[in-house]
Design a protein around this nucleic acid. Structure first.
Lengths: 218, 218
DNA sequence: CCTACCGATCGGTAGG
DNA sequence: CCTACCGATCGGTAGG
């Protein structure tokens, strides 16, 4: 909160008044905001690799070249940083999902479904996409309030599946109840963070084919 | 390691020699072994509720009426206790699974499949079955060596699914590749620890029906 | 299994 | 964003 120039101003007594309004940022202040994304990325990577509890705020600070107390200048607590990671993950996942769904005509629900599955795998296993996997693992380390604020984004993400599943149910491609189907399907896909490896085994496309063949008739 | 009687023996110089061989347990010693199951159960319950890192060994000790250092008389480290919880969970899950499979004739693979799914849900959501859910969540908190020793039990559990899935694949009830099917199906079922509630929503039987309808044709 | 304790780590903060 | 620091907690151990 204390502005750096304060130090200089107190040295000289009579200083010409600064212009009114919010002071312009000087070159020295430019770091104020733009280190936040770096902190988020480093935190996401470390949280995914080591887990939330096994990662200290010192680890995160070191990963972006800060000193131990500095992350708390950007985030009020370690769990607030975790929550920010998850929110960022959900926001970009929702954007990716919306973009993917729009790129496919709505008429064959099977094609929409394939796109949803493929996009979900990308969100989980794409290069640098550590944000959502962290959310799947570390949900428990949030406070109740943070969980509530996140649940809105989660519902938004899940909501995109419902009309597609309903269409598939109506056309006979899906026989199980829609709501339980959504829970089971998303679980099957999300669980792949536990076993999928980009370097061995099936590719994401093969995985998508297998999921389609497993869940849908015809 | 130091036997409690030692204290008494040193008080009197000339003590009649104890009979050879391992000393019989006296009433005071009876706790030596049989507090272990209590520790395991308490640990499983707390690990599931709060997570491994959020549970201190003091919490566990208090839950069974011990003092803070005493769990380390039974387990050499906190993670050894975690590993013991998981091993106990897998052993009883495997036993439950073997019993369930044998109770059903092998001929309709669909009936076998239903039994496997239903038993898996029981292992995850049955009363007092906290051991396996802990394993699903806290896999990362094990040492590499512990993970290796556990993987044998996990493979044993998963192996029971393969012949059933192969039969279903051969009969046309399952179209996706067997190996990927097993991974996706077990993921869908296991993920239910994240959302299933015994007090609201579907029952375990309804869940089993939904899973059968979702994964299998006809 | 208890008592008494240690060393290390960690989230967080005051003040600049 | 750095410096310097604190209070609390925690896994684990020695000795009995």
């Amino acid at each position: 909160m204390t502005a750096p120039q304060r130090l200089i101003q107190t040295a000289t007594e009579a200083v010409p008044k600064r212009p009114r309004g919010r002071p312009r940022k000087t070159a020295d202040e430019r770091d104020d905001g733009n280190r936040r994304p770096a902190l988020l990325s480093a935190a996401a990577r470390l949280f995914r690799r080591q887990g939330f509890d096994a990662t200290s705020t010192r680890d995160i600070a070191a990963a972006v070249g800060m000193h131990s107390g500095s992350p708390f200048y950007h985030f009020k607590s370690k769990s607030a940083l975790l929550c920010a990671v998850m929110e960022e993950g959900m926001r970009s996942a929702i954007a990716r999902q919306a973009c993917a769904v729009q790129s496919v005509p709505p008429s064959p629900a099977l094609a929409q479904m394939r796109q949803l599955i493929r996009t979900h795998f990308d969100t989980l296993h794409g290069r640098g996409n550590d944000f959502v996997p962290v959310m799947l693992y570390e949900h428990r380390s949030l406070t109740d309030l943070q969980r509530v604020s996140l649940s809105k984004l989660q519902h938004e993400y899940e909501a995109a599946w419902t009309p597609v599943l309903e269409a598939l149910h109506a056309s006979g491609h899906l026989r199980a109840p829609v709501k339980l189907s959504r829970l089971l399907i998303l679980g099957a896909l999300s669980w792949s963070v536990q076993w999928f490896s980009a370097r061995k085994g099936a590719s994401l496309d093969e995985l998508t084919d297998a999921a389609m063949a497993l869940f849908l008739k015809e």
